[in-house]
Design a protein around this nucleic acid. Structure first.
Length: 326
DNA sequence: CAATATGATTCCTT
DNA sequence: AAGGAATCATATTG
């Protein structure tokens, strides 16, 4: 029974043409494919039709054999009925036995066909096997979000949807990405240091521009940290992104002649804000603020088994931002 | 071709 | 259910 259903759903035993492509399309939609894998789909469909043909011919063959055998037995019985009386019940019984035998054979055929289809599916449609990297742009967007929310890199469902939309991937892919990113970041923070600096600088610059404009407009205004509409700006147990921003701003100086000055003042105000919000921050408030290896230490969401921090074989990852010559 | 990066899946915990 | 950890299978890189 179930085998029948599955074969029907898979388009093997259903209508001749429509079923296969429909099943393939459904499977493709389930695996969240974009649109570029039409080649694989046609390949898959070809294989599926092959399976379907085999299945149908075999099925037909079995049916035919069953009928032939039945008539043969009937003839034999009829012949015997001349010499001895044969009740119709006996004939019925024989026919039933034959049909049962053949239907069990058909069952085997269906089962093996099911297996073949499953193998085919896992071979062609399992996204894990045909893995494609996301576009450069998509990873850019995701990384930007990740590093600008480093203190709490857990996007809400809505944020995930938005990111998915922007990156033209699915929400579950966004979830996967963040899951992988969090774990891999935590596992080896040193390896991600320059990436972190890069994206932090990128977002920081935009923020700094905004703030600089605001400061120019209204100097006496107390800046309430123009965080893009993320979650609360003061839930920070560590405020890693803040420190990131400031570190990159201060260390790298971003070649901006005028901007640099504005940013410097901005850093001061930011530091002020941080001192206000984080009551505990007197420990690392002023002087430790700009040393990059302290950034690793004050992780908030990554507080499992202290990750042996920076141990890179090649160069000191802690001194990434010390741009030497000009 | 080995090493590494990366997206997806599975198992397990909370 | 969502997230962490381990793992798989492929992509990319050197």
């Amino acid at each position: 029974m179930r085998l029948d259903n599955m074969l029907l759903a898979e388009g093997v035993s259903g209508p001749e043409k429509g079923g296969g492509s429909a099943a393939a399309a459904a499977a493709a939609a389930a695996s969240g494919g974009s649109s570029d894998n039409s080649i694989e789909h046609s390949d898959y469909r070809a294989k599926l039709t092959q399976i379907r043909q085999i299945y149908h011919t075999e099925l037909e063959k079995y049916e035919q054999a069953c009928n032939e055998f039945t008539t043969h037995v009937m003839n034999l019985l009829r012949e015997q009925s001349r010499t001895r009386p044969i009740s119709p019940k006996e004939i019925e019984r024989m026919v039933g036995i034959i049909h049962r035998k053949f239907s069990s054979i058909q069952m085997q055929l269906k089962q093996s066909t099911c297996e073949a289809v499953m193998i085919l599916r896992s071979r062609f449609l399992d996204a894990r096997r045909k893995r494609r990297n996301f576009s450069k742009q998509a990873t850019e967007i995701l990384n930007e979000y990740f590093y600008s929310h480093l203190s709490n890199p857990y996007p809400s469902e809505e944020a995930k949807e938005e990111l998915a939309k922007k990156c033209s991937i699915t929400v579950s892919q966004v979830s996967n990405w963040f899951g992988n990113k969090r774990i891999r970041y935590k596992k080896n923070i040193g390896k991600f240091q320059e990436e972190a600096n890069l994206y932090a600088a990128k977002t920081a610059v935009t923020a700094a521009h905004a703030v600089a404009a605001a400061v120019q407009n209204n100097q006496t205004n107390s800046p309430t940290t123009p965080n893009s509409g993320s979650s609360g700006s003061f839930n920070l147990p560590n405020s890693g992104d803040m420190f990131m921003n400031m570190q990159s701003l201060n260390g790298d100086s971003y070649q901006g002649s005028q901007v640099g000055a504005n940013v410097q003042s901005q850093v001061d105000t930011l530091r002020h804000v941080i001192n206000q919000t984080g009551g505990y921050s007197d420990g690392l408030g002023g002087n430790a603020l700009y040393s990059p290896h302290n950034l690793n230490a004050n992780g908030g969401w990554q507080d499992a088994t202290t990750p042996s921090s920076v141990t890179s074989p090649t160069e000191g990852p802690g001194s990434v931002h010390s741009d030497t010559s000009n």
